[in-house]
Design a protein around this nucleic acid. Structure first.
Lengths: 134, 134
DNA sequence: CCGCATCCAAGAGGATACTG
DNA sequence: CAGTATCCTCTTGGATGCGG
């Protein structure tokens, strides 16, 4: 058995992502997707408008930024505020739940950066080992 | 060596995933993908054979388990050992680098479980608010 | 038992053009 | 400015069958 969690099983014995069909898998999917990590990180504890977010997360398309923000809003992690001016101004902020995601995602981000060199090296090794193949 | 450096920003000021084309984005993509979190968690600090892994991560297809393990091996996070018996036995273990990923991924897993209720509720609210639409 | 190859469906995600 | 809509491409991932 895997029973990853320790104390959590007490409250939600059924919420185990290692089990097929467990709804927490959907959540893992979402927060692990390509842009969510970056958008949440780019928001931080600030209130940021759409265009500024787009600048902060380099390379994200307008479509995917809108989509990612919608999903985050839908999940209650981001609050969206429309200021009906001309031109319109739309601002986004992390909710309390969203804020609580920052630390774990930041840890991932830090891990990626600090292990970048190792991974690059491992990949190079792997390549050379398998170069004689096929 | 694993060089889990801390002041890595000194060495690699350019490693910023918010910048387009930054190679750490690839890493974020990989560790954030659907199965990696679960496979790493299912390995833990044990040595596990393929079929057992498949049982632990319910619902993963043989193809995706193989694929995920290959990528992890390629990135130096998992070590693969083949025992040439009949039938063949293949075992997987997390390397030191792989072990260092467990904590951050565990945090994500825990977050998903503990915020499941909030997210469900937020989604329900969102639905009812937008039910009058379209 | 492990895993590769093939086929195929669904979704991710970019580019572009148009609206309030 | 902040989207929506459309189109099109590439990737993800399941199902199945074969091979060491």
């Amino acid at each position: 058995m895997v029973t990853t969690s320790v104390a959590q099983d007490e409250d939600h014995p059924a919420l185990n992502p290692y089990l097929q069909g467990c709804p927490t898998r959907r959540i893992l999917d979402r927060i692990g997707d390509r842009w969510t990590v970056l958008v949440v990180g780019a928001l931080g504890d600030e209130t940021v408008r759409f265009s500024e977010l787009r600048r902060r997360v380099e390379g994200i398309s307008q479509k995917m930024l809108t989509h990612t923000l919608r999903e985050l809003e839908r999940d209650g992690l981001v609050r969206r505020t429309v200021h009906p001016e001309v031109p319109v101004r739309v601002e986004y902020t992390l909710t309390d739940a969203g804020q609580s995601l920052r630390a774990p995602l930041k840890a991932l981000e830090a891990w990626s950066i600090s292990h970048f060199g190792d991974i690059r090296a491992a990949q190079a090794d792997y390549e050379s080992l398998h170069a004689a193949d096929e």
